[in-house]
Design a binder for these strands. Sequence first.
RNA 1: GCGCCCGUAGCUCAGCGGAUCAGAGCAUCUGACUACGGAUCAGAAGGCCAGGGGUUCGAAUCCCUUCGGGCGCGCCA
Length: 570
Amino acid sequence: MSDRYKIILAEEIIKTNCIPSLIPEHCIELLEMPNDSNLGDYALPCFNFSKTLKKNPQKIAEDLMNRMTLSSEFSEIKVIGGYLNFFLNKKLFIKDTLTELLEKRENYYKLNIGNNETILLEYSSPNIAKPFSVSHLRSTNIGNALYKILTFLGYHVIGINHVGDWGTQFGKLIVAYKRWGSADFLKKDPIKNLFNLYVQFHKEAETNPSLVDEAREVFKKMEEKDAALIDLWKWFTTVYLNDFKRIYDALDVKFDHITGESFYNNHVASIIELLESKNIAKINEGALIVDLAAFDMPPLLVKKSDASSLYATRDLAALLYRKKEYKFSKILYVVGSEQKLYFKQLFKTIELLGFEWGKSCTHIDFGLFHFKDGKMASRTGNIVELEKVITKANELALQTINEKNPDLEDKEIVAEKVAIGAIKFSDFSSKRIKDVLFDWNEMLRFDGETGPYLQYTNVRILSLLRKYEKDIEDLDCEFSKLETIDEFLLVKELYNFRTILVKAASEYEPYYIAKGLIDIAKRYNKFYTSHQILKVKKSIAEARIGLSYCTHIILNLGLSLLGIQAPSQM
RNA sequence: GCGCCCGUAGCUCAGCGGAUCAGAGCAUCUGACUACGGAUCAGAAGGCCAGGGGUUCGAAUCCCUUCGGGCGCGCCA
C-alpha cells in the first residue's frame, strides 16, 4: 500500500520529463516526509539525480518545480537545499482524511495485505519445568501483538504455544523429587516447591555431576513410556499448566493451539528415519548429527547417544507435522535471539530434506532480559516471577487511582487494565532486538511514553464525548472548520498510522505501532490543551468532537493490536 | 578462539538503503488561564552519536579496525 499523496506526486514528477530514467515506483520510494512539517509535508531529495543529469541538485529541484503542475491536493512547492518540498492543501487534506475515517472507522486501517494467507505463529512457548518469569513475557507479548496485527491486516494466523513440556529437564525434576521431595510437600505449594527442587538439583549437580546422568537416564525411560515416570510427569506438567493458565488469563493472551513438545513424541521416529533415508544425518561420537559444515555452521544434534530425543528432533517433527496439518505459507518463531544459530540450523536441515519452504521459515528474535547483576538464570533461582510483577503493578495502579480518582467505580478492574497496560507497553517501547534491563521503576511507570498515557488520552476523549451528549451517528462535521496547525498535525498522524501498521506487520515489529500511538496521543494532548472543544461555536465544536472521536478510534484499535485494554474511565 | 547482536543526553531508547538527522521519554529546574480529567501541556538544561582510520561534495548512518557489553558455538531448551 502506498501513500496516495506520494502516488499523486510521483505521477506529476514523472510527467515533467525532467528526470528521464525515473519510474513511478522508484519515485514513490524516494519521496519522504520531513520530520519538521515547516519544511513541507512531502519532499523529494534531488541529490541522487545530480550524477546522471550532471546538474546540481538545487537546479534540478528548481527545474522540476517550474515544470510541475500541482494538483489540488497540494498548496505549495518550495525548493530548500537540494530538496523539492511539497505542502499539502491542509483544508482539503483534513476534510478528506477525516470524512473517510469517520465513515469507515477502524476499517479505514484494515488494509488487506495478507490475502488470507496462512501464517503459523509460534509464541510464548515456556519451559514448564519452572515458574512463569518475566523472561517469558517478551515472546508472549510480542507474539500476541503480532497475532493481532497480522490478523487485522488480512492474514489467517494460527497461534501456537509450543509448551516446553518434554525433555531432560523433567528427568532432572523427577530425580530431584525422588531424592528430596514428597507427595505431601508438593500438595501445599507445588509451584514453589517444584521450583525449589529444580534449583536444588542444579546446585547439587555442580558437585555431583552424576545427577545429570541420572536425569538423562530417567528421561530416556520416559521416552520408553515408563508408566510410573509418566504419571509423575503428568502431575508436574498439570500443576504448572494450570498455574500458567492463570497468568495467560491475567495477560489476556490466547492461543489457537497449546501443543506441547510431548505431543510430537510419536512423530520423532519417522523424522529420524527420514533424515537417515535421505542420508542427511550421520552417526558421530555415538550421536546422530546433521553435518552443516558446508554452510559454515556447526552440526545439529538430532539424537542423543542414548537414543533419546532432543529439542531439535521434536522441532523438526513439529515443523513437518504443522506443514502437513495447517499448510502454512509462512511460519514465524517468536523466540529469543540466543537461539539464532539454532534456528538457522533447523531451517537449513528442512531445506536439506528437500523442502524448499525451509527458506521461508522465520525466526522473530528479540533481546534478553538482564538484571543489573547479570543474566536471568532460572537454574540458580535468579528469576522474577511474572505474577509478582503483576501484583505489584496492580497495587501501584490502584494506589494511583485512589489518589487521582477516588470515586471511580470498579477500581480493581480498571487498576488491572492499567497495570497490565503498563507492563505490556514496556515491551513495545523499544525495538525487539534490544536487550532489556529489568527495572521495576521502568516497567511500572504510568506517565510519559507509557501504556497508561495512551489509556489516559483515550479516557479523556471518551469523557468529552459523554459530555457532548450527541450521538456520534448524528454528527454533522464540517471538517473544513478545523484550521489550526495543531489539528492539521494531528490529522497527519492519524493518516500516517496506516503506513505504520503495514511497516509493523512487514517487519514484525510492534514497536512501530506503539510509537505511532504515542505520536498520535502527544498531538492530541497538545491539541486538547491548546484549544477549547465544547464551548466554541457549534460548527467548530462538532468538527472537533469528530476529530476527537477519530483519535479515539485509532487509540482503541492500536491498543487492542498491542493486546492492551482501554478502560473508559481511570 | 570463531560467529552473530548491541554501543547515540545522567538513565531508557528512536533515528542507520548518506543530505530536511542531533531526537523522544524519564530524572532535574521553570511555568500553565474556571476549559473539557494535571496519569496532561509549555519551556530550560543536557550529546566529539564508544575511539581511530577510510569512501563521499556530504557519515550517527556505508567500509575497515580497536575497545567495551551481550549471546551462541554437540548429547540443555
